[in-house]
């Protein structure tokens, strides 16, 4: 099996505080992998380490190529689209300019119109908001914009950091429906960080579980969600209700 992303013994720290203590996992090409864990487990840090946003040890490989220590913009240009924690909206720019920014690094320049049509198909709401300042969008709309910005860059790998956070359950359900569609349509590899495990495991084919900077389990999403011990200890019994399943 070929991998979009491999993490070998990756460590990361902010200043003196070590956050990741050497984690190993991989994202198979063309599939959705979920990275689960409680608050503070190091999920967001893992994504930031992949993107070169923090001091990182060990080895990160993108489609076999070592990208450890490269700058975030260089990694982005290699086809990694990071939908960050907090959505990373360019608040002072229009929705259209936000999308144009996503397309800056698209390999095939002429495709912007088509990419745009595609994201407006997924998120018709954005089309109505095109000329508006992105900072005036609702949280859900900003999440849609962040995902769209990632899509128009024609990425090989999308990193999604808790897309469900702060959104109403009905919006979350809608969003995950569209994410599933994107995963099917595009054949793009995805690494999805979520606290909402039930939701994530439904979308993903593989999953890894983080606990305070260590990887404690990984496997197929099905196996992970059916393992009663893991479910009870890490995913929480009540997760089903929260997910609005």
């Amino acid at each position: 099996m070929s991998y979009a992303l491999e993490l070998n013994d990756v460590t990361a720290s902010y200043g003196h505080g070590s956050i990741l203590h050497g984690i190993n996992f991989a994202v198979p090409e063309g599939e959705v992998t979920a990275l689960l864990g409680a608050n503070g487990a190091g999920k967001t840090t893992t994504l930031r380490a992949i993107c070169g946003m923090i001091e990182t040890g060990g080895e990160v490989r993108l489609f076999g190529e070592d990208i450890t220590g490269k700058s975030p913009d260089a990694i982005a240009r290699m086809g990694v689209a990071h939908v960050p924690d907090g959505r990373g909206t360019f608040t002072g720019l229009t929705v259209m300019d936000n999308l144009r920014l996503g397309a800056l690094i698209a390999k095939r320049r002429g495709n912007f119109r088509r990419s745009l049509d595609r994201v407006f198909d997924y998120f018709p709401r954005l089309k109505e908001r095109m000329g508006q300042h992105a900072g005036t969008l609702s949280g859900g709309e900003q999440q849609m914009l962040a995902i769209s910005r990632a899509l128009v860059s024609e990425p090989h790998l999308i990193l999604l950091d808790e897309p469900s956070i702060g959104l109403a359950p009905v919006i979350v359900k809608q969003l995950f429906g569209i994410l599933e569609q994107i995963a099917q349509d595009a054949g793009v590899s995805m690494l999805l960080v979520e606290q909402n495990s039930n939701l994530a495991l439904k979308l993903a084919s593989n999953a890894a579980l983080l606990e305070v900077g260590n990887l404690v389990a990984q496997g197929s999403a099905e196996a992970l969600s059916q393992n009663q011990d893991i479910a009870r200890a890490y995913l929480g019994d009540g997760a089903g209700a929260e997910a609005g399943a």
């Binding site: 700058s71 913009d73 982005a76 990373g88 909206t89 608040t91 300019d97 920014l101 860059s153």
Partner: peptide
């Protein structure tokens, strides 16, 4: 222009600019 857009982006949000591939 794309360069003008990238300059505006870098002024608006440095971290996001890096994530869309701009050398801030």
């Amino acid at each position: 222009t794309q360069l003008g857009l990238a300059l505006r982006a870098a002024a608006d949000n440095r971290e996001s600019s890096r994530l869309v591939g701009i050398n801030v």
